[in-house]
């Protein structure tokens, strides 16, 4: 056996990745028992936080609640998760409303057995074996995983970036385009590069000033 055959293929962990169907689950939440399939037809942001009654998570929940109306306008729902009980979630949500004046308007999964957290790889043992990291899974209305973001325990998420990703994905779906770095709605989008030399010539002719070169063309929507 030569050395090359000793190289093992990377282990496939089975964790969901971009482009995969979202793993289905049934879970106890602050809105009662919900199945992931209940969200079909809506985009969904499934996100985890390390623990209830912690300061960074509290700022995040207030921020998620703040963007919830805008997400709903995009046909996108929110579903939180942590390794806490429903009673803890209820107490925390009530505390946030009482002390901070912010109503949490979305359900939170009580994942005491880490069933959903394990299914989605939300626990990063190198960071913590008992808490979920700040994971974000963005799913489309057909429940395909479209984006995954991880933040560590110490760092609160950027809601504007999460909103931006949802808007960018929906724009890509609607118009068959891509979006450049730091794209915001209203800015130029990127045409997918041509796949043949003939199409490249045609692209430069048709798009004119919108092209820096055959593979780099932007346009207004």
């Amino acid at each position: 056996m030569d050395s090359a055959t000793d190289i093992q293929a990377p282990t496939v962990t089975g964790l969901p990745r971009i482009g995969d169907p979202a793993p289905q689950f049934t879970a106890d939440t602050t809105f009662g028992t919900l199945k992931l399939e209940d969200f079909k037809g809506s985009w969904l942001i499934l996100f985890s936080h390390p623990a209830d009654f912690t300061p960074v998570c509290t700022t995040e929940f207030m921020a998620f609640a703040e963007i919830h109306p805008e997400l709903r306008e995009l046909n996108c729902e929110l579903l939180g998760l942590s390794v806490d009980s429903v009673y803890s979630h209820i107490a925390w949500v009530r505390n946030v409303k009482e002390k901070m004046g912010v109503e949490v308007t979305f359900p939170i999964i009580a994942d005491l057995n880490k069933d959903v957290a394990t299914l989605y790889g939300m626990v990063n043992p190198g960071e913590s074996t008992t808490e979920t990291s700040r994971a974000v899974f963005i799913m489309d209305d057909k429940q395909m995983i479209r984006a995954i973001i991880y933040y560590p325990l110490t760092t609160g998420r950027n809601m504007q970036e999460i909103l931006r990703v949802v808007k960018a994905l929906q724009t890509s779906d609607e118009h068959g385009v891509a979006t450049p770095a730091n794209w915001e709605p209203g800015q130029k989008v990127i045409l997918p590069p041509p796949k043949s030399a003939e199409a490249a010539d045609q692209r430069v002719e048709e798009e004119g000033a919108g092209c820096k070169d055959w593979y780099f063309c932007k346009k207004d929507l």
């Binding site: 809105f31 028992t33 919900l34 199945k35 209940d38 037809g41 809506s42």
Partner: peptide, 12 residues
């Protein structure tokens, strides 16, 4: 109410 909530409630 959002559809996901109605689906869960109808099931219950």
């Amino acid at each position: 109410e959002p559809l996901f909530r109605v689906r869960g409630s109808l099931r219950e």
